[in-house]
């Protein structure tokens, strides 16, 4: 990575990050857009979870991550505290990797 490349990535990233807070600001959205925007976090977070759980380089990979996130899902369902969910997910995946199941 050269300095110009880092500056370019930083500038592009900032533009993408600032589009919402600076571009849309606190303006009232038209009702339909407001409803979509209300539903956005569910779609985004769910997609992020999916990609981080089974996404690999240009492929779907079912590995120790899926077991860990599965265990975390059970913990969420049982209303475990946030930190416990993270620890259960990470520990499950770590344990499977430790015994070579990945």
């Amino acid at each position: 990575m050269t300095w110009p490349a880092i500056a370019a990535l930083a500038a592009l990233t900032y533009l993408l990050k600032a589009t919402g807070p600076l571009g849309a600001g606190s303006r009232e959205l038209p009702p339909t857009l407001a409803t979509v925007s209300d539903l956005l976090p569910a779609a985004l977070l769910a997609a992020l979870v999916a990609v981080q759980t089974v996404g690999a380089e240009a492929a779907i990979s079912l590995d120790a991550r899926l077991a860990g996130v599965g265990a975390a899902a059970v913990a969420v369902w049982l209303r475990a505290p946030f930190l416990a969910v993270i620890v259960i997910g990470a520990a499950t995946t770590a344990a499977l990797r430790a015994i070579g199941l990945d």
């Binding site: 992020l48 979870v49 981080q52 996130v69 975390a72 993270i86 520990a91 770590a94 344990a95 990797r97």
Partner: peptide
């Protein structure tokens, strides 16, 4: 960090944040 399963900390945490939105 992957040996510690820490890559799963993120989807696990996001899942916990997602659940109440549903």
């Amino acid at each position: 960090p992957e040996a510690l399963g820490l890559d799963v900390a993120f989807p696990a945490g996001f899942l916990a944040l997602l659940a109440p939105l549903l």
